[in-house]
């Protein structure tokens, strides 16, 4: 079975985002970018399924500017077999991404598509579900465990209040939650080997998909700042404050 793993290049999660002074977005010039953390978990899960003999081939996919090649090389260094980059300089929304991925799924005929549950830049949490709608496949979102058996996959999902398990017919869509696995680091020899792995370059036009954005960003602002607080010296003073707040009598 073939597994597709879409990955996104995002502002590194350790970097504090800075809003541009003109209110048009986040300043991404000269800041560290890396693979979306949830996508690393998706790549790792695909590799583990290959190591178990469930998957035969892993195809990593990214949509974005040329620099997204680096993100795909990381996926290849972790263990993906080949990569597809759909180059676009324009902003692409989850709906457009899902349409492109649907076109690739039609071409590649995978058994599973594993995505991160959300990208830490736009925080949308939509692409996997949208792709599932377009393919008509079952969706196992926010997965903390994935178990393929025959022509079905059992997915344990993190839900408010606990966990639930669903069984999906293959092919299916899975989106990863944080506790699914601990992604591996790419070793230096594997980083070198990844340079020789195939990476196809495409454009959205190759798939005949309209990815024009439906949403316009009117402005981007800093959230309201909290006013500076006070430090108290001991527990008694803290209790005094709690009394003022009306938390304790």
């Amino acid at each position: 079975m073939k597994i597709l793993v879409p990955v996104k290049r995002v502002l590194d999660y350790n970097v504090k985002p800075r809003v541009k002074a003109d209110g048009t977005g986040i300043d991404l010039a000269n800041v560290k970018m890396s693979m979306n953390p949830f996508d690393e978990i998706a790549v790792e899960e695909a590799i583990r399924l290959k190591e178990k003999g469930v998957a035969t081939e892993i195809v990593a996919i990214s949509i974005g500017e040329q620099k997204a090649q680096e993100t795909l090389r990381t996926a290849l260094a972790m263990g993906a077999d080949r990569a597809i980059l759909i180059v676009t300089e324009d902003r692409v929304e989850p709906l457009g991404v899902a349409k492109l991925l649907k076109a690739i799924a039609d071409e590649e005929q995978p058994g599973l598509i594993i995505l991160g549950k959300q990208a830490i830049d736009d925080d949308n949490n939509q692409t996997g579900q949208m792709l599932a709608a377009m393919t008509g496949w079952g969706q196992g979102t926010f997965a903390s465990a994935v178990e393929v058996a025959g022509d079905t996959v059992k997915v344990t999902r993190e839900i408010d209040g606990g966990a639930e398990t669903v069984e999906l017919k293959l092919p299916a869509i899975v989106t990863t939650d944080l506790r699914l696995n601990e992604p591996r680091y790419a070793s230096l020899p594997n980083i070198m080997k990844a340079k020789a792995k195939p990476m196809a370059q495409k454009t959205a036009a190759d798939y005949g998909v309209d990815i024009a954005p439906r949403l316009t960003t009117v402005k981007v602002e800093e959230p309201a700042k909290r006013s500076a607080g006070v430090k108290v010296a001991d527990v008694d003073e803290l209790i005094g404050k709690l009394k003022t707040l009306g938390v304790v009598a």
């Binding site: 949490n125 579900q129 709608a133 954005p213 949403l215």
Partner: peptide, 23 residues
């Protein structure tokens, strides 16, 4: 924006061919 809501809404949006606005 509950886990159920987040699971269902984007699937609906894609069926309607519209972009969801999250959260």
């Amino acid at each position: 924006s509950t886990s159920t809501g987040k699971n269902i809404a984007p699937r609906v949006a894609a069926l309607l061919d519209v972009m969801q606005i999250s959260d």
